Amino acid sequence: MSAERAELVTVGRLTSVYGIRGWVKVHSYTEPAENILQFNQWWLQNPKSSGSGGWQPLEIDAGKRHGKGLIVHIKGVDDRDLAAQFCQRDVAVSATEMPQLDEGEFYWHQLQGLQVVSQYEGREYRFGEVVRLMETGANDVMVVRGGEDDRERLIPYLPGEFIASVDLQARQITVHWDPEF
């Protein structure tokens, strides 16, 4: 399968070299972090591209936890200088490799770009789109920008409390949120 045909999901980043034998440190976006090692086919963002374009296959032949982080070995790369060329680049996998979630659960990449509307005191307010999500420890938070008043809002992602519904087909999240907040 080519990277152009599959929807790719960014799951981590190669950050820096580790040792002298071609190992690199990985910052994983998966939860738990070790889950990134379970994916069969990794795609590495080309160094000159940014955003969603330009991916090349990356073969990993070993990976493990090291201290508080993860390290992986790139197949055929046994030199520190060569390994450095792979660093500071995003790692993605095909969306088809992602584990199936239970109904009502969503991956962050599915929520990004969705329009957020609030039903508040009998009126609908358009808050803009989810530009990213972040962990706060207590719960995840949606960063929503744009909308009628062109503000940025931080809305806790708490289904049943602030999140009324998520409709991937309509590309919309309905929230219970005061537009003044």
Rank of each mutant, 00 (worst) to 15 (best):
W177M: 01
F127A: 08
D149F: 08
S52I: 04
G137V: 08
A84K: 15
E7L: 03
V175S: 05
E4G: 03
T15K: 12
F39M: 06
L14Q: 07
G12N: 05
S94W: 03
V17Y: 01
Q56V: 13
R153Y: 13
V175E: 11
W177H: 08
C87F: 07
Q110C: 08
P156M: 06
P99L: 14
A62G: 02
G67E: 05
E135P: 00
L58S: 03
G19M: 09
L133E: 01
W42C: 01
V9M: 04
V175Q: 10
G146V: 02
A6F: 02
D102C: 01
Y18A: 13
R123M: 13
E97H: 08
G53K: 13
S50Y: 13
W43A: 03
I173K: 11
V175T: 12
G22Y: 03
N46I: 06
T30D: 07
D61G: 00
W42D: 00
N40W: 05
R126N: 06
W42A: 04
L82M: 12
F86Q: 11
G19W: 09
V141E: 05
V116L: 11
L133F: 09
K75H: 09
V72C: 07
V141Y: 11
E121G: 02
L44E: 05
R21N: 10
P179V: 14
S52G: 11
A62S: 09
M98I: 11
N46Q: 13
A33D: 08
T136Q: 12
N46R: 15
I60C: 09
D149L: 07
F106H: 15
E34Y: 11
G51L: 02
K64W: 08
E121I: 12
R151V: 00
T10G: 02
T10K: 11
E97Y: 04
P159C: 13
A138V: 10
F127Q: 02
Q169D: 07
A3I: 05
D149H: 08
A83F: 00
I20H: 12
G146N: 00
I71G: 03
E97W: 02
F162C: 10
I60L: 10
G63P: 01
M1Q: 04
S118V: 04
S118W: 01
T136R: 15
W42S: 01
G22D: 02
Y120R: 13
S94N: 07
P179Q: 14
S118M: 03
V130D: 01
L168M: 06
R151A: 02
Y157T: 08
G113I: 00
A62D: 11
H66F: 13
Y29C: 07
R65H: 13
E4P: 00
G53F: 08
Y29H: 12
Q41A: 09
G12T: 05
A138M: 06
P156K: 14
D90Q: 14
P179C: 14
W23K: 13
G53S: 10
S118F: 02
Q169V: 12
V130T: 07
S94I: 10
V24Q: 09
W177Q: 03
D149Q: 10
R145Y: 01
G19K: 13
I20K: 14
A6C: 01
E121Y: 12
T136E: 09
R5T: 07
P156H: 11
R21G: 03
